[in-house]
Design a protein around this nucleic acid. Structure first.
Lengths: 399, 399
DNA sequence: GATTTAATTCAATTAAGTTGAATATTCAAG
DNA sequence: CTTGAATATTCAACTTAATTGAATTAAATC
């Protein structure tokens, strides 16, 4: 287990400048859809000549496509450039104690392939070859002339290795304690690898292809085994000092409340999570082990499930108020491994606190919206992270 | 009132590259104290030649000073460079409904001058000339050959103009509703101006000259009129979508608890804040309107104050647990307009949640530490913000 | 049809980096 | 005490990727 490296602030040179500018251009193309060179030059504050060079380079690498000239009033109509969906792909993998979920997405973050593979053990010796095989299969699924692979995003139940032990006892994978997953996966897969937690990955997926494409600041509440939180603030991922930020499940919403597995009382997770729903329904003699069960119960208007929803909404509303006051997001998004209809019902039932910094006269979005959900969310998010990295420079933003 | 501008992601060029690299160099000099050219080149990933050029430029502007050559084993001993304390100054101003606090700091963030000025009204027509006069006096206090003024940081009770109305009813200044304070102050003072909230400014002061000089991620709990929060995460200031992040005072710690002025129940501010202490003591027939009163009561071992501290510690401990789980900071710092001894007592009384992500085997710092406090904290922090901006590039960090 | 406007390219220039060789100063080994 | 290795720094030449200003093309307006 190694301590997190202190972040190093490095200088820039011509090469890094170009890399930065490429990302800036790709980012603008992503958010605007299509743009001409001159307009890109204006947006980025670069000269048209510089833009021409960058565009030529990106087009040469097939990351962007030249479209029709588009007439907009006087003057030579601008050639419209768009991202090339087939310009590159990214892998996403979620490693769980008993399964590996593998996804492949295109340069826009759209899903090309998904697969679930059962594993007998979560030890590195088992996981690494299985992930390698799954990724190879994913890549071969798109045929011979495959575009470049930008990298692989890996989601693992943290906290592990790099980030050290923590108190909020989580389901850790066995055999990874003293390992550096990033290095191991990079070694096996031979592409750049990023390891993130599920909630953050899901948040990035939401921003890449979901309901947050227009947002720069939002909180993504992720229903997984527990309850996670991915925070994007002004376009930046919030990780915290040790990569463990966003432990929403163990935020206390009721002093002296229900006993949680972490040893505390009143954790949000004990009220509002898949686990909490399962336990509640089990006491009523109903089984709801997976999303399908919950979906079915909801479709059948099961009164016990309805009761749980009502009961779960209050603590969640309180927690959302806390998120609003602390992070001042444009919206709070609920998603993850929960049936979408259930999330909708939960949102309907929310009685939000009516005086937080998010209660604004100029709101356009609802304070809480439903995001992407389903079992693949995290794996797709992991892949989206890689796409995200090629769009987002870690640089110069100006208000 | 204007809506917050969407953040613009801009390209880079040679000029911006140099600006970035200068900041990188200054930042390293700040955190290391003194360094030679070659070592700076290694730290920044730049060539020694480039470093020589940058150093020459900075030395020419008297922002850094060449020291003795320092022998460290074999080879030519490196000339050690340090920041020049007298290389530049920055102004800091806190505007309150009835007073203006003005501060001047040197290039290291050390205090050179402070002054409090009473004002009759908080309208722009009164405040702007008063601030101008105060700043002029501050600058003339350091004599004729004054070093360049990097800018002025302004702290005002938000949320105002730029960030729009919010629900958590705060003490707003009258007459500023539809104004752009940054532009107004820049116009009057003729130096670059930054407007921030008190808690963020105080957090930056803590990082510049206080107990967080080594920290990249921390939460600063600011005792002002209410209770604010400044968050620095991996060196970046967390502002939120509308600049209102960190509204800690209105985080609910007790469902259905005490009625707060914001209309909700159970806000942290109603338990743990200067106002809460005043009210508590008033009920016991004691007056504690300012820091001095509290200080005196504490010195006299006043049993009522002790009782309040015990009562206030629990909600605070819970909130700190929430901060730890959400932000994963290296430490939580308590400071602001509270007597330091009282903060110490409060910290002693804290019964922290024993399972958050901050409970780590490899901790070196306590989870909660006391930070800078006193009436000038925010104004000094405002000035520190300006210094901070000249050290911290908004760019390329590498883990 | 002539003129204006806007996008784009061409050619020259410039800023700020990199690279490799030369020089200075110190430590360590013979 | 001399010599060689290590380290810091500078000098000079080169490279990258930007900028600037003039030229070219195509559409809109007069």
């Amino acid at each position: 287990m190694h301590r997190k490296a202190p972040l190093k602030i490095i200088g820039s040179n011509a090469e890094r400048t170009r890399l930065h500018n490429r990302k800036v251009v790709l980012g603008h193309l992503r958010s605007h859809g299509k743009l001409g060179r001159a307009e890109l030059a204006r947006l980025t504050g670069l000269s048209t000549q510089a833009m021409s060079n960058i565009i030529a380079e990106l087009e040469g690498e097939a990351l962007i496509l030249a479209g029709e000239r588009q007439t907009k009033g006087r003057g030579l109509p601008a050639v419209q450039y768009t991202l090339n969906p087939a310009g590159a792909v990214a892998l996403g993998v979620e490693v769980r104690p008993n399964a590996i979920l593998c996804a492949l997405v295109n340069f826009l973050g759209d899903t090309l392939y998904t697969k679930r593979i059962h594993i007998k053990s979560s030890e590195p010796a088992v996981v690494l070859p299985a992930v390698k095989a799954a990724c190879d299969e994913a890549l071969s699924s798109i045929g011979k002339n495959a575009p470049p692979v930008l990298g692989a995003g890996i989601v693992m139940p943290g906290p592990f290795g790099r980030v050290g032990l923590t108190g909020a006892g989580k389901a850790e994978l066995v055999g990874w304690d003293d390992k550096d997953p990033q290095a191991l996966f990079e070694d096996v897969l031979q592409v750049p690898v990023r390891v993130e937690n599920d909630a953050t990955a899901a948040a990035i997926a939401e921003q890449t292809t979901g309901s947050a494409t227009e947002l720069q600041s939002f909180c993504f509440v992720y229903f997984g085994t527990g309850l996670g939180l991915g925070v994007i603030s002004n376009g930046e991922i919030l990780r915290g000092a040790f990569g463990n930020a966003g432990e929403l499940g163990h935020v206390v919403v009721e002093r002296g409340g229900r006993l949680c597995s972490c040893g505390n009382r009143g954790c949000l997770e004990t009220y509002t999570s898949r686990m909490a729903a399962s336990e509640f329904l089990q006491k009523r003699g109903k089984s709801a082990e997976n999303q399908k069960d919950l979906s079915d119960l909801l479709a059948a208007n099961d009164p016990d499930l309805e009761e749980w929803i009502s009961e779960a909404a209050d603590p969640l509303a309180q927690a959302i108020g806390t998120l609003e006051n602390l992070f001042d997001p444009e919206a709070v998004i609920l998603g993850g491994a929960m049936p979408p209809e259930l999330l909708e019902r939960l949102i309907e039932k929310l009685d939000l606190i009516d005086a937080t910094v998010s209660v604004r006269a100029d709101r356009t979005l609802p304070r809480v919206v439903r995001g992407a959900s389903g079992w693949m969310t995290a794996a797709l998010g992991a892949a989206a992270l890689i796409i995200h990295d090629t769009y987002i420079p870690s640089i110069s933003k100006v208000a």
